[in-house]
Write a protein that binds this DNA or RNA. Sequence first.
DNA 1: ATTTTTATTTTGATTAATCAAAATTAATAT
DNA 2: ATATTAATTTTGATTAATCAAAATAAAAAT
Lengths: 229, 229
Amino acid sequence: MSNENQGMPSVTVENYLKQICLEQVRRGGDELVPMGRLAEAVGVTPGTATTMVKSLAEADLLRYAPRAGVELTASGRKLAHRVLRRHRLVELFLVEVLNMDWSEVHAEAEELEHTISDKVLDRIDELLGHPTADPHGSPIPRPDQPLLRDTSLSLDAAPIDRPLTVVRIVDHDPDFLRFAETHGLMPGASTRVTERQPHADAVSVQTEDRPVVTLGSVAAARVLVKDVE
Amino acid sequence: MSNENQGMPSVTVENYLKQICLEQVRRGGDELVPMGRLAEAVGVTPGTATTMVKSLAEADLLRYAPRAGVELTASGRKLAHRVLRRHRLVELFLVEVLNMDWSEVHAEAEELEHTISDKVLDRIDELLGHPTADPHGSPIPRPDQPLLRDTSLSLDAAPIDRPLTVVRIVDHDPDFLRFAETHGLMPGASTRVTERQPHADAVSVQTEDRPVVTLGSVAAARVLVKDVE
DNA sequence: ATTTTTATTTTGATTAATCAAAATTAATAT
DNA sequence: ATATTAATTTTGATTAATCAAAATAAAAAT
């Protein structure tokens, strides 16, 4: 009636797969995602995650190594990428077409990523001109070649005094995003690390023609940049 | 995590309320909706509907008269209207903004009506200029004054040879909608009943400058018109 | 007034997803 | 090598939503 027919994965399954995929990318790709981490990401107790993971392994969506962790199979990854694609296209759509704020679209997309049909998604994709990144700079996987690799140079680790371009913000907290925006830290912006204070656990950056701002290493790690070629 | 928090009604509850609302409108408003009808509309067995209805009565969303049927309470109606508003605004949005066909948007909206947030809905409403009817001519309830009354003059019962305007198609079957479209029977079109054949259970209509087409009474009853004032 | 038919309700079970708390295993520290 | 701590898995229960099939009630027909 409402959500899933026969082979269609439930919202719950989609969330587990998506979360495993994100965690795997976050940890380089060849490590297993530990149960505790997954449970927290999905928002359930560890016991629940264990149960669920066993049934996902049964369905060949992931490999489960007891007491070690999980990793997606090819079909699990494919499904996860479809969810991520929907999520990110929806985010961009909300910003570009409905003029919503980039700080609020993540929460909206969390719901819509499970409901948007392929047909609607294709229209959105077309309307937006087949974009390759969402408003936060996260790559939008294509249904065909759904790879997902990371530039992974964070402000935290970037060289000093070289011209950089912000490529991505890996944080969805609305407050952080608004903070980033007020300092010009958005994908596409030109920036530069003016100074690094290792003892203070901080870096100072100067973005476009704005005043210098100093970030702690945790915040700085959330801002990915690339060296201007 | 994903769908409903505390007071938020589940997708299932929303569907029951919506369906009761639609049935109530369909039968004038003061009759009770019988269980069998509701079960069929929601797509569950009668026993399931009985169980569900009891818990909805408990929550004061409807009144349940055993062996007779159900009707919405004020709060149930309010919720149902919100679902209908989301459904119809989404339909119009899909047609107007994403250029989808009016025959396919109903199915899409069946899903999205449960997922779209108030904020997104408001943007859509604004973007469309606060419309009052969906692509099939069904009224879009406003959150404030959510009444829902029917013009209820069907082609079936319309006077002969008077200028009429199509106001609404009360059918969501894609095939029927495509058929209606090919004969110009869409909201806003000018039409006229040229002839009625009671024994053949049929009416012939002539729309804009198109050839006359003859409809059976069941189909004709699905096309609502108004006499041009 | 019975019988038959139809609609509705009950009953007993099932499935997906979850939790709390106990049991187990592995890792870390002493 | 042992004791402590932390992570994971098991166990037993719960909740929402459902079905099939038996029981009941009301309506229609004889």
